[in-house]
Design a protein around this nucleic acid. Structure first.
Length: 527
RNA sequence: GCGCCCUUCGUCUAGUGGUUAGGACACCGCCCUUUCACGGCGGAAACACGGGUUCGAGUCCCGUAGGGCGUACCA
């Protein structure tokens, strides 16, 4: 809850009937329209109740489409989603595209795609804030009519000068209110005015935030903000209030960078005679070096994480643990996350993004996946992975079977899907295999001699399976008075071109007799 | 500059006046072992600093330092 503390003088000055003005026919009809769809009604029946007011919880995620969905936005979306799911409420999606110059359709698509990949769904259709400007303007008119807003004719030059002057005097840079008391008939010629909100000059505005606690702002530090641009389009702080109110948002969960906005919005809510939703301002995510997240420190679009081979469930789990905790629990299913998530579990300090931990979690989820699940996930992801398309092109049905058969051994050696692809390269490689440096180092002339003898020993095997192969290789090692490692490592190098792979008998089995013997032969002295 | 917020191992965090300050990641060592992993066991590692309040402060208060956010006709 937020509320506004007005000084008595301010209240007297203002025309009182704010409530009547805001009930414009349009706003009212919207509300009825919602009721007619039956959505509200069904919510009342089936939705969990917001303990604060007894109404169903409605959260929203409201990104601005000026770029991809970055990691901070993704976590904000996750928290909103989690809270809505936890309470049995709804999460709405609203695209804050009122800045036409900076908003793009590509960004909208990227945000939607990012949310879908993360597995965060929303209720209803995404709402374009820009499409609702008529309604926003009506609220501006209502504010104007009630005396809670006024026209300002100051030029940008004047405003800049104002700011510089205030800075020089060590005061907060703010609008000095010079048009605040201008008489309506005192309009300068030929200047398209902006509309400013008439904010209280004294007293303070208190935000009772579910995460930040009670935060107080002196009203003298909050200047008269522009709510309608000179081109007649509404600005963010006004639009947000109107939309959140109209869309029935009960809980606003967003980054702390909005805290000051919330103070101003709280004043607008009051002037409009509306209740302020429950607020929860969550800490931001910092880069690994503690500085603000930037493109160089992990503020990548979620699609970048997909390209790095992370699993959505790992991302969800990792993101959930940033500034939120449930005791010592570290790894939990999405279902548990929903059960456990609540606002009191959110801390106030910012968290650094740690790729090492994300990777560990990702490895955990890969290992925890069944072989089939992981194979499906990999196939879905291949188009997005750097080596994916090439790998996919080589993945014949037979090799896909081999991949499936090798998954158990492969997945515990990979922390990302990219590592999984790298580890599976030997399955799709063509003879003769290229050897990496370490593998080449393993294949001296002694080893190559040994390989030709081993080739002959294996060629005579009847049934080609892990058991018979292990028996044969161990026997071979014994006869040649070699430790198993002395045989297995060169064999691995010949079979995979690397020094790292799943168990060597599994490799032999999956590759099959012909391919295995061929690869061994390729590296033998006599072939 | 001004306003608001933050500060427990390197990192994410538990902790709500009395704990040997716990867990996880990362790191180090050992075990397992055909490689690499996985797994198991063990280790090192923190209450930013200074004042109060209290019989007793990581926990409450004040200050200092450091950090973050905000300060637009962006959202």
């Amino acid at each position: 809850m937020l509320w506004l503390v007005l000084n008595p003088h301010e209240i007297e000055l203002r025309p009182k009937p704010v409530r009547r003005h805001v009930r414009s026919p349009r706003l009212k009809s919207r509300a009825f329209h919602d009721l007619e769809t039956g959505q509200i009604k069904s919510l009342l029946f089936f939705g969990a109740l917001n303990t604060m007011s007894g109404t169903p919880v409605v959260t929203r995620f409201a990104p601005s489409p000026t770029g991809f969905l970055h990691i901070g936005g993704a976590r904000t979306a996750l928290f909103n989603w989690l809270y809505a799911r936890h309470t049995g409420g709804k999460m709405l999606l609203r695209i804050e595209d009122t800045d036409r110059a900076r908003s793009t359709d590509e960004a909208v698509a990227a945000i939607l795609e990012g949310l879908k990949w993360l597995g965060l769904d929303w209720d209803g259709e995404p709402v374009s804030q820009f499409s609702r400007t008529d309604m926003h303007k009506e609220a501006v008119d209502a504010l104007l009519a009630s005396g809670n807003a006024y026209k300002c004719y100051c030029s940008r030059e004047e405003l800049d000068a104002m700011r510089e002057k205030a800075m020089a005097e060590g005061k907060p840079p703010r609008y000095d209110g010079r048009c605040r008391h201008r008489a309506p008939d005192d309009a300068p010629e030929g200047i398209a005015p902006v509309i400013r909100f008439r904010s209280p000059e004294e007293g303070e505005t208190l935000i009772d935030d579910k995460v930040q606690g009670e935060v107080t702002f002196a009203n003298k530090d909050l200047d008269d903000l522009i709510i309608l641009r000179s081109d007649g389009t509404p600005t963010y702080n006004l639009s947000v209030v109107v939309d959140d109110h109209d869309m029935g948002v009960t809980h606003i969960i967003r980054g702390v960078d909005h805290l000051t906005n919330s103070a101003r919005q709280s004043q607008i809510y009051s002037a409009l005679g509306w209740d302020v939703p429950v607020m929860a301002h969550i800490p931001l995510i910092h880069g690994p070096d503690g500085a603000k997240l930037s493109k160089r420190h992990g503020a990548l679009g979620v699609e970048a994480y997909r390209e790095m081979g992370y699993l959505p469930q790992a991302m969800r789990n990792y993101l959930a643990r940033l500034s939120w905790s449930h005791g010592d629990d570290e790894i939990f299913s999405t279902q548990q996350m929903i059960e456990w998530f609540d606002l009191p579990g959110i801390g106030k300090s910012a968290a650094r993004f740690d790729f090492a931990k994300l990777e560990n979690l990702n490895g955990h989820y890969m290992r925890a996946s069944s072989d089939d699940e992981l194979l499906r996930e990999l196939e879905r992801s291949l188009p997005h992975l750097p080596q994916g398309p090439d790998f996919l092109a080589r993945l014949t049905p037979g090799k896909r079977d081999a991949l499936r058969a090798s998954m158990t051994g492969l997945k515990e050696r990979a922390k990302t899907l990219n590592e999984l692809v790298a580890g599976a390269q030997y399955l799709v490689a063509e003879r003769p295999l290229a050897l990496d440096e370490k593998a080449a180092g393993l294949l001296g002339s002694d080893a190559r001699d040994m390989l030709s003898r081993l080739h002959d020993a294996l060629a005579g095997i009847g049934e080609w399976n892990a058991e018979t192969l292990e028996e044969a290789v161990r026997l071979f090692a014994e006869k040649n008075e070699l430790k198993l490692g002395k045989v297995a490592q060169p064999l691995r190098a010949a079979l995979t071109g690397t020094t790292t792979s799943p168990g060597i008998f599994d490799v032999l089995t999956v590759l099959g007799r012909e391919e295995s013997l061929g690869r061994i032969s390729d590296q033998s002295t006599t072939n």
